[in-house]
């Protein structure tokens, strides 16, 4: 009986989210820039401590790539859902109550939460070819949100002949490149003639299905794709305060932040912490960023 009750909750959450997305426009600053003909989902993995990879500390996330005729958008699935629901206070309230129910439910089954917790995960959003011949990037450092522009140039690829791999039922071929301080290996599907890929990757004769840097620090794997028509929106979320900057300044700020680390950052920002609250924490994450040319 409990399973049935439980299954009833999921459609309710989805329903709430769906109805909210349409009414949320008024709270966020959003406008439609294109329409998709293809929507892909990528699972991303990255190591938070690249100097000690054998310790097995890895973080994962799920990103959506919306491909339209002129532009494409790459963003974190759960962060987007979170920001949309949050912008609508009614929806947010209902979501919170459902989550509370979820937690109680979980305790009863002696288990963990089964629905995803809506929260801010990956903060990166990439708008390719928006504006024309440029990219617009949204990203964050701790709680500060930034917007900056980048060029829209594809990578310089070298085909690797005689390499075939099957991904998601598509025959894929391999290509390699060097981009902004890293070497990458990509698999693209010729049967999907789409000039697009995850993050800023593009310029191959087919959709990039999987790509990773040769050291294995960052991997992007496609996990789903569908032929769907939905609007691609440019959004500035109402709950966030954005600052304009440029790519290099952003990378430098991000590098600085990773050296500082969350704990030091919180300590530096809290006026009333007692001395005994200073827990010695080994220096922040030692990971190299996706782009290293700064």
């Amino acid at each position: 009986m409990n399973n049935q009750t439980f299954k009833k909750i999921h459609p309710v959450i989805l329903f709430v989210l769906l109805t909210c997305i349409t009414t949320v426009f008024s709270q966020n600053n959003a406008y439609i820039i294109d329409t998709t003909y293809l929507k892909c989902e990528y699972k991303t993995n990255y190591y938070t401590d690249t100097l000690a990879m054998e310790n097995g500390i890895w973080m994962n996330d799920e990103f959506i790539l919306q491909v339209g005729t002129n532009t494409s958008k790459y963003f974190s699935k759960l962060t987007d859902a979170y920001e949309r629901v949050k912008a609508d206070s009614k929806a947010w309230k209902v979501y919170q109550e459902q989550q509370k129910l979820e937690r109680e439910n979980a305790k009863t089954r002696g288990g963990m939460l089964e629905t995803a917790v809506l929260a801010r995960y990956g903060t990166l959003v990439v708008y390719n070819n928006y504006p024309q011949a440029k990219r617009t990037i949204h990203d964050a450092v701790f709680f500060d949100y930034y917007i900056f522009e980048d060029d829209n140039l594809p990578q310089q690829w070298t085909m690797v002949p005689d390499s075939v791999k099957n991904i998601l039922g598509y025959k894929c071929r391999k290509a390699v490149c060097s981009y902004r301080g890293r070497d990458y290996e990509a698999w693209y599907a010729l049967d999907l003639p789409v000039n697009a890929g995850p993050w800023k990757f593009s310029g191959l004769p087919g959709l990039i299905m999987s790509i990773q840097d040769t050291k294995g620090h960052y991997t992007f794997e496609i996990s789903g794709l569908e032929n769907t028509r939905e609007p691609i929106e440019y959004i500035e979320y109402g709950a966030r305060k954005y600052a304009r900057t440029d790519r290099i300044t952003f990378l430098r700020t991000n590098a600085k932040a990773s050296n500082i680390g969350w704990v030091r950052y919180l300590e530096a920002n809290s006026p009333q912490k007692k001395e005994s609250d200073f827990i010695p924490v080994s220096g922040g994450a030692r990971y190299n960023f996706l782009e290293r040319d700064f």
């Binding site: 999921h10 989805l14 929507k39 892909c40 989902e41 994962n60 996330d61 799920e62 959506i64 699935k77 759960l78 859902a81 963990m112 939460l113 089964e114 629905t115 995803a116 917790v117 809506l118 929260a119 995960y121 998601l168 039922g169 996990s223 789903g224 794709l225 569908e226």
Partner: peptide, 12 residues
């Protein structure tokens, strides 16, 4: 390969 809706245990 349909993209699943957000239903993951433990969250991302």
């Amino acid at each position: 390969v349909l993209i699943k809706s957000a239903k993951i245990s433990g969250a991302g």
